[in-house]
Simulated scan of single mutants.
Amino acid sequence: MARLRDPERGCPWDLQQTFRTILPYTLEEAYEVAEAIEQEDPAALREELGDLLLQVAFHSRIAEEAGLFDFGQVVQGICDKLIRRHPHVFAELDLPDLDAVHANWEREKSRERAAKGKGATDSLLAGVAAALPALVRAEKLQRRAARVAFDWDDIAGVFAKVEEELGECRATLAEQTDPTERVHEIGDLLFSCVNLARHMGVDAEQALRAANRRFERRFGQIEAALRVKGLEPGPAVRDEMEHLWNLAKMDGRNELS
């Protein structure tokens, strides 16, 4: 990266980049790591981890040029943090179970926030990055609130809340409500669905990513089956598409060949 950013011999594109301009690439590489993991492709994972590591090196080099920090400090910082947050491994603290480990982790994070000038008056929800995907952020916010018992006692209450929010969405449609109100109600429904996923032990973001992949695969099967018949997707073949969709959903069968 130092060579690529060299003012005399470097790459013109690399020299033009800033923290902000490479941010989209950093996010993209992180998602490509996730994709490789979900596809259970170790060769792709190795490659994508390298691409993600390059982003860390890129940001670090820009920071070093500005006199902010360098790559070594980034690595040292995360090493120090891991040691500090694992006194049951690197020191003599006795944490007998997973609950105790989690509790100590949160206490250490609170001390770190206080050391950064974020005192006890800060919200418990402070620090949940706004740039996270909405489903991920919703789950993190809910988990933070659950630490102080602001949560449903059992999953039955969560199901009831989802049904309640769905009913409110229906009401906004029937009453020809202002579009902004519909946005709010859909948001509340999605938030409650994330809550349901959390109580069911499901990662909402991963679940939706998997659903997207299933939809792509099944719709691709529909398109392929229509092509065999000399047809194209459209209103004229809607019933046929519905039939093919149902076939595509059948487990363990290749009805579209």
Results as ranks from 00 to 15, higher is better:
Glu216Thr: 09
Leu95Ile: 00
Leu124Glu: 10
Thr180Met: 00
Gln206Phe: 01
Ala211Gly: 13
Leu256Asn: 06
Asn212Leu: 12
Ala100Thr: 05
Glu139Met: 11
Glu106Ile: 10
Met250Glu: 13
Ile222Cys: 04
Gln73Leu: 12
Cys79Ile: 14
Leu226Asp: 04
Leu190Pro: 03
Val56Tyr: 10
Leu256Trp: 11
Glu64Lys: 08
Thr21Arg: 06
Glu112His: 08
Phe19Ser: 11
Lys109Ser: 12
Ala129Val: 06
Phe159Asp: 04
Val228Gln: 15
Ile186Lys: 01
Ala114Arg: 11
Gly50His: 02
Ala146Arg: 02
His199Arg: 13
Leu45Gln: 02
Val183Tyr: 01
Gly119Asp: 14
Trp152Lys: 12
Glu181Cys: 06
Arg198Ala: 08
Ile78Ala: 01
Glu165His: 01
His88Pro: 07
Thr180Leu: 07
Val33Ile: 10
Ile37Gln: 09
Trp13Gln: 12
Val183Thr: 03
Asp51Ala: 03
Gln16Lys: 09
Val194Asn: 04
Ala146Lys: 06
Cys79Glu: 15
Lys161Met: 10
Asp41Tyr: 01
Lys118Ser: 08
Glu139Lys: 11
Asn104Lys: 12
Phe150Gly: 00
Lys109Pro: 01
Leu98His: 10
Ala34Ser: 08
Glu181Thr: 09
Glu92His: 11
Gly67Lys: 02
Tyr25Asp: 14
His59Val: 15
Cys11Asn: 08
Leu135Arg: 00
Ala115Asn: 08
